[in-house]
């Protein structure tokens, strides 16, 4: 178990830095209405080992979220969305459990479960995260249409970036 701590901490740190140093800067708008955000940090939570205790997941998500919020000047928004994502991660993993089940030390990667499973897992978790994120940001379902558009476009770009990173680096842990 211990061999997972260092790579995961590293991954969290790298994703955190990449998010605030790179992807925060290339946020853009379409048609002056649709906000397209690159949200790649959920990967840090999604790629923790499958049997990670839920408590740990939630705490890591909370700390990472608050850290991002400090840089995004949006105290609580990323944290709230990420804590929710961490909470439902277990449900998604249970939902799409492969026929042979999970091993104790499995890490949700392409290498371990194949690209089909990973795309399924990532898209489900990511779309929920992004939708929740924009909902909390708008803080009112009066803007439901805008929230939907923002979510869809942001999901597409974030998904592409995360998939590319997975295919390029093919992480073992």
């Amino acid at each position: 178990m211990n061999k997972y701590i260092v790579p995961n901490l590293l991954r969290i740190l790298i994703l955190f830095l990449v998010q605030i140093l790179v992807f925060k800067q290339i946020t853009f708008t379409l048609d002056n209405k649709i906000f397209v955000h690159f949200l790649i940090y959920p990967l840090a939570i999604l790629q923790l080992p499958i049997k990670t205790p839920r408590m740990v997941l939630l705490l890591v998500a909370f700390i990472l979220g608050i850290g991002l919020d400090v840089f995004y000047d949006s105290l609580g928004i990323h944290a709230a969305a990420l804590v929710l994502t961490a909470y439902i991660r277990g449900i998604i993993i249970a939902m799409i459990e492969p026929y042979e089940g999970y091993n104790v030390n499995d890490v949700p990667t392409i290498r371990n479960f194949g690209i089909g499973w990973f795309v399924y897992y990532l898209s489900l978790a990511l779309i929920i995260h992004i939708f929740v994120y924009f909902s909390i940001e708008a803080f009112s379902f009066v803007y439901f249409f805008e929230i939907m558009l923002n979510s869809i476009f942001s999901f597409i770009v974030s998904f592409i970036v995360i998939m590319l990173s997975q295919l390029i680096f093919r992480p073992k842990f």
């Binding site: 408590m55 998500a61 609580g76 928004i77 944290a79 909470y87 803080f139």
Partner: peptide, 24 residues
């Protein structure tokens, strides 16, 4: 514990959101 922690953390987050962010 996990569920309680989840609720507590979300409450903290939303308290922060409403208290610290002008727009929200």
């Amino acid at each position: 514990g996990a569920h309680i922690l989840f609720v507590v953390l979300e409450i903290i987050c939303f308290t922060l959101i409403v208290n610290k962010n002008d727009t929200q």
